[in-house]
Amino acid sequence: MLKLLRQSLHRTLIVGLFLTLGAAAQAQQVLRITAIPDESPTELARKAEPLVKYLEAKLGMKVEFTPVTDYAAAVETLINHKVDLAWFGGFTFVQASVRSGGKVIPLVQREEDERFKSVFITADPTIKTLADLKGKDVSFGAQSSTSGHLMPRSVLLGAGLDPDKDFKRVAYSGAHDATIAAVAAGKVQAGALNISVWEKFVAEKKVDTDKVRVFFTTPAYYDYNWSVSAAMPEALRNKLAQAFLALDKSTPEGKQILELQRATRFVPTKPENYKNIEAAARSAGLL
């Protein structure tokens, strides 16, 4: 009787083990991705849709896009393994790297991210230089935004302007398109944002450039990337990187995805590219 009970328990444990392994294998058939909400939710969803379909075909697995409410949530979801792949700005990558103890790996970036820039815009004819921002209401994007806050703040500090002391009011719009809207509506006298979003709005005639204009452009810096957790199996990591590197504007699919991502092409990247971003964040007291 005891022998039969032992055999039954052994079989139960084996079945349970196979069920557990089966469930784990099934769970690995879904790649979960997210992105910092640097634009409106509808725009992020529009950009994600063709990329999701492309990655599903390249990886042979289901891909799901999971939106997040803010930049901090994008960092937390990756380092807590709630998503597998995240679109970060340079600063959010640095935050994720620091928070995870270096366990976040930047895979690829757009070619444009090797020399990214921010712009300061205004509809106020009296504002012509950064010094003219003294005593004004100025909007940044999200507080954890590289191009919408950190690098513009770093440039201002380098020019001898402390936003928290020299501006009448510092606002945070939450996203680049919202900064443009705030300046255009006269809610603030100036704003700082991602040059790529500004150029997109100009090209699509979503902003009246007779009223709203760029009056300062920052020096270039490294910015956005697609990052993964170091826990991701190397084979999947390499397959994922190759999928991005294979995107080509000469194909209809590649053209659609790259244009939505505002990219010429994707290129490999590495943690060292973001050392200057980390230094700027520490210098500005944001890290």
Rank of each mutant, 00 (worst) to 15 (best):
R153H: 07
V83H: 10
A203E: 14
S154H: 15
N273H: 08
A73L: 06
P233G: 03
P252Y: 05
M61Q: 12
T66M: 08
L245F: 07
E234H: 11
K255N: 06
D166N: 08
S154I: 15
A74N: 13
D70M: 11
F88Y: 10
R265H: 02
K53P: 14
T12Y: 03
S118K: 01
Q256C: 02
V30G: 11
L161T: 11
A184G: 07
K128G: 01
L2N: 05
E259M: 11
A246Y: 01
R213F: 01
W226I: 13
D177Q: 12
T218A: 02
L85A: 14
K62Q: 13
R265Q: 09
E278D: 14
S227Q: 10
F215S: 13
F65V: 05
L51T: 15
K249C: 07
D166V: 04
P67T: 12
K117D: 01
L240V: 06
S196K: 14
L133D: 00
P152E: 06
F266C: 09
S8E: 02
D124I: 01
A96T: 10
R110N: 02
K117N: 03
A231C: 02
G89C: 02
A231R: 09
H176R: 10
Y222Q: 03
G60L: 15
E43W: 05
D210S: 15
L156G: 02
T69A: 14
A131L: 06
T269N: 08
V30P: 15
V30F: 01
V104M: 01
Y224C: 13
Q95C: 08
A24S: 05
K58D: 04
P268D: 12
A35Y: 05
L4P: 00
A57M: 09
A74E: 05
P152H: 04
V94A: 12
D248Y: 03
I121A: 08
G102K: 02
T269H: 07
S145A: 11
G141W: 00
K136T: 06
V98C: 05
R110G: 14
W226G: 13
L44D: 12
Y71K: 07
A72E: 06
D84C: 09
A231K: 08
H81A: 13
L133R: 00
T34F: 07
W198D: 08
Y274Q: 14
W87M: 11
L161F: 03
S227T: 12
D177F: 00
V98A: 15
R11A: 09
G101M: 11
G16V: 13
A181L: 04
Q26W: 05
